[in-house]
């Protein structure tokens, strides 16, 4: 049990950790599809890795992702790897509600016991699920943080959205989370615009974890950071994996990050999943030509 999970019970109003069955599927996605454009009957036929494009040759629609299915158990981490335009970030954006998918289903253990499709829920319900049960770390801090309000305020916003109504408890929780992310309490009331890139990402992580979410989504979270700074951020994520029992989905083009953080990996190209498996298997016995190219191109 982490320090986070052992806060006074009245403070952790939406703590799923205790009730979480380790073998429960926290997040399940089936046939997720997202597109830019109207689409036509040929879109599916004419896009994907075999065509080396995600743009439909007939109508010009971009099939950002299609036929994406996966499940993540509580406490486990799935990596999604692929080049830019492969659709990996689109998958996260659809899950977090930043983008409306064209089709498919997503179910969350903490929402209607996983029996309902999140994608067809009302905008208000989706927002509530996002506020209470999900966390997201964006590649760019400016997408995930309000850089003008204080670091503590950024964490507090999630707590307030989840109906925390005592400033002292909010400050205790935000301060604790930021401290775990190695941001001293003395900087809690400073806006993140005054922070380094690595610190901003750590504020994002603290914010994502604020409500003890069932699922945390991490999008290229270390891409913009120096290698030495990356290390510190990755260590904190590793620590959280061990203590929080959350399901994580990590999007990265960096196989080193994937190897470090993810037990399982899904490889995407041109909007489709070309291969998925245990991370060590993907790296040591890749079967799809693209995965082989990817793995042989870097020394992860």
């Amino acid at each position: 049990m982490s320090a986070i999970a052992t806060l006074p019970t009245e403070m952790v109003r939406h703590d799923h950790v205790a009730s979480r069955n380790a073998e429960q599927i926290a997040l399940k996605v089936e046939n997720l599809e997202a597109q830019y454009g109207r689409g036509c009957s040929a879109c599916h036929e004419l896009t994907g890795p075999e065509h080396s494009t995600n743009v439909c040759g007939q109508c010009g629609t971009v099939i950002a992702c299609a036929d994406v299915s996966f499940a993540v158990r509580a406490g486990r981490t799935l990596g999604i790897v692929g080049e830019s335009g492969s659709g990996k970030t689109t998958v996260l954006r659809c899950l977090y509600g930043d983008l409306n998918p064209a089709g498919g289903t997503a179910s969350l253990m903490t929402y209607e016991d996983g029996r309902a499709n999140l994608f067809t829920a009302s905008a208000q319900v989706r927002r509530r699920v996002r506020n209470f049960d999900m966390g997201m770390v964006y590649q760019h801090a400016r997408d995930g943080l309000n850089l003008r309000i204080s670091a503590g305020g950024n964490v507090a916003e999630r707590l307030l959205a989840a109906e925390w109504r005592r400033v002292d408890q909010i400050r205790a929780r935000a301060g604790h989370l930021l401290e775990r992310m190695e941001i001293p309490r003395s900087r809690m009331d400073t806006p993140p615009s005054a922070f380094s890139g690595g610190m901003q990402q750590r504020v994002q992580i603290a914010r994502a974890l604020a409500n003890g979410p069932a699922v945390v989504l991490l999008d290229e979270m270390t891409s913009g950071l120096d290698v030495s700074v990356q290390a510190g951020v990755l260590d904190l994520v590793l620590e959280l994996q061990r203590t929080e029992g959350v399901a994580m989905v990590v999007v990265s083009h960096d196989l080193g990050v994937i190897r470090l953080l993810c037990e399982r990996t899904m490889v995407m190209k041109n909007g489709r999943v070309v291969e998925s498996g245990l991370t060590d298997q993907i790296l040591e016995d890749p079967r799809h030509p693209y995965t082989q190219l990817l793995v042989s191109s870097v020394n992860a």
């Binding site: 905008a123 989706r126 927002r127 503590g152 305020g153 950024n154 916003e157 959205a161 400033v167």
Partner: peptide, 20 residues
Amino acid sequence: RMHAEADYGRIWVALYEDVV
């Protein structure tokens, strides 16, 4: 959109910042 989704975290955080 914020009204439609009852997404009121930001107005609350403005009050929080006021208190801080």
